[in-house]
Nucleic acid binder design. Sequence first.
DNA 1: CAACCGCCCTGGGAGC
DNA 2: TGCTCCCAGGGCGGTT
Length: 269
Amino acid sequence: MPELPEVETTRRGIEPAINLQTIASVSVRNAKLRWPVNPDLAQRLVGQQVKSVHRRAKYLIIQLERGILLIHLGMSGHLRVLKPAPAPEKHDHVDITFGNGVVLRYNDPRRFGAVLWHPENQHPLLEKLGPEPLSEAFSVDQLYTLSRRSSQPIKTFIMDQQIVVGVGNIYACEALFKARINPKRTANKVSKARYEKLVVAIKETLAKAIEQGGTTLRDFKQAEGKPGYFAQQLTTYGRAGQPCNHCGSTIKTIKQAQRSTFYCPQCQR
DNA sequence: CAACCGCCCTGGGAGC
DNA sequence: TGCTCCCAGGGCGGTT
């Protein structure tokens, strides 16, 4: 499940292979992703040089000479760097081949992701995004101010991409455990002192997950095809019925906004 | 406007 | 073994 650490891991994997390279060919086998892949994608991309490979929230932004290529991995997507590329398999929807022989291959069984070319450097999807959690722009003051007018539970509040980007279900659960906050607590009823802990917890959790190459549950693979290793450090996510690492009481699961939340009722208040 | 809910999709696991 | 059912979930878009 690609969240910010998985997307950042992917960015670091693909950048050295494709940066400053020129696109030689593009092959789209299945255009039906979250949004249809532009039928003229090849025409738009071939001959263009990659100027940089960035990440914003969970979007990969491949800056070209003219416009940008925006890639979202959705739920089950991954990108691989192949040289040479074996024959495409099921769910290998898009290949982008570069002048150096590298093939960037987009695979996404559930097709919740996106591959979008956009003529301008800014894209409507990027406009309303909140601050990057690992930047200084994500601060206690900013988060606390926003929280005062939110009656959502704290968990859905920190998963709102307009509040802070890149915190998906797994890391929301993990960060709330680390900050010892009950996920059901209403955002505007959490004290500033606790937001201080939460901001630190989010930053530490995400940074640690990036170090470990992301979390591999079922689908995620790094660009080189390796799994991520953060799954072994999960304290709450996917551990319903198991003992809390901290107090030994049983990890509980509930539904919030149609998502599973895992938490320790003893530690998190 | 904020909050909530439905929907898109497929593979994997559980249960029978 | 094989079928059916349920679940995973990011984020848009529509409704309350």
